[in-house]
Design a protein around this nucleic acid. Structure first.
Lengths: 226, 226
DNA sequence: CCTAATTCGATAGTATTACTAACTTTTTTG
DNA sequence: CAAAAAAGTTAGTAATACTATCGAATTAGG
């Protein structure tokens, strides 16, 4: 059985649906490779076009600008991740066990074979770690938010918050805890790889110290009196 | 008594010391206003030069580029904040009380009159919240780090980590807790203001819910068994 | 006090980037 | 198969990021 989970995207995220043509799909797929190689700031539509054997203007038919392409990729990732969360916790009844699985998913630990079409999910995860916050840290957040560009992220946080409340009813910081947990998972990974003195996890030591930290952070707050 | 705390900066942070000339000081001071008004991406040295009645090239004499100016401003902020932390916790003997004061400082709550020269510290704080992570989320982090550009941030985290260990000896996540706390304080503030559904703090409600959250997050982890 | 050296800032450029208008080719469909 | 619609290309422009070089001002030494 070889099916790819089709992620249906909000049509405000693009000018022309990249899923609808060969060039469009290659823009997304090669866009991931380019952002991963050069980083967001050094990537340009010119370089992406060269890679695709086409012209900048063709890419502008699909995405208003480079920032919108980033927003699209990040939104795709959140939708994919939410699907994984739903799918992989579906059969679990114990709220604690479900949260444990979510923590591992946030760090992309022991991934099952998941069909993602031709998108490289590991590289996309790397992009999310170092670039995702640039999607909302702009002067036009409010306008972008009005256009629902961040809905996938908010949906994921909402679902996670619901799981926290399931484990601990009346916990008063479910939403903030959910968004903090996701952000903390990402920038601690970044720090670990790039500014290790900001963490307690040298690259050399046991690989899952970060997972232990997140678990401790989450459950000590959930279990504490408030 | 009217003294400004002179923040002595690492000389890798600039090409020519902006503290050493009138134009230099105005670049920093107006740079803060510009970044605050337009945000980092829409700011340019051209616009800053216009504001100063000078030319782009003059600014390039002080800072290699716009990113370096951001790094400078952010570094200045961390050094200022570390000084505040030291100064305001100096007379406190109770480790818990000291941490409480640090939490308030992170959110810039009930600031005493602090001389900061002609720099607008509230606007600089706003810049730190929405732009500081762009200082290190680049392809050249490693090279920048080698040049000690992030030393002020690392020093602050280090000092905070030491305070955590003072409260709870052998706590195994002091550094990660410190960096997470700072980052969480900032992006929860950003979310609260721009994407409130990612938090539990609507703008309307009691203003210090965020402080309560950070306190809960911090102390429940510090007090939990590990 | 005067000249030489050094510092400081301005002028005038260039290459790249981000974006657009208008056109041509391809595909779809009635 | 012709008309319409969609897809992609050509050829630009304005703004941005940056640099080489020149001139003015300040400082330092004699």
């Amino acid at each position: 059985m070889d099916y790819a989970v089709h992620v249906r995207m909000n049509d405000k995220l693009f000018l022309r649906d990249p899923e609808g043509s060969d060039l469009g799909r290659r823009i997304v797929q090669q866009g991931i490779l380019l952002f991963d190689e050069l980083g967001f700031e050094d990537s340009t539509f010119r370089k992406l076009a060269d890679r695709l054997g086409t012209k900048e203007a063709s890419i502008y038919r699909y995405f208003e600008n480079k920032h919108r392409l980033l927003v699209y990729l990040v939104a795709w990732y959140w939708q994919w991740l939410e699907y994984q969360v739903v799918f992989q916790t579906n059969n679990l009844t114990d709220p604690k066990e479900r949260l444990e699985r979510v923590l591992k998913l946030l760090l992309l630990r022991d991934l099952r074979e998941t069909a993602t079409g031709d998108l490289d999910i590991l590289k996309l995860h790397a992009i999310v770690i170092s670039e995702a916050s640039k999607a909302y840290l702009t002067r036009h957040v409010t306008e972008d938010n009005r256009q629902q560009l961040f809905k996938p992220y908010k949906d994921l946080c909402g679902r996670l918050a619901a799981m926290l409340l399931d484990y601990r009813p009346n916990y008063p910081y479910a939403r903030s805890q959910a968004s903090s947990l996701i952000e903390t998972a990402h920038f601690q990974t970044f720090f670990m790889q790039n500014l290790p003195s900001l963490t307690d996890f040298g690259q050399s030591t046991e690989p899952d110290r970060l997972l232990h930290f997140l678990r401790h952070l989450l459950f000590s707050s959930l279990n504490a009196p408030f």
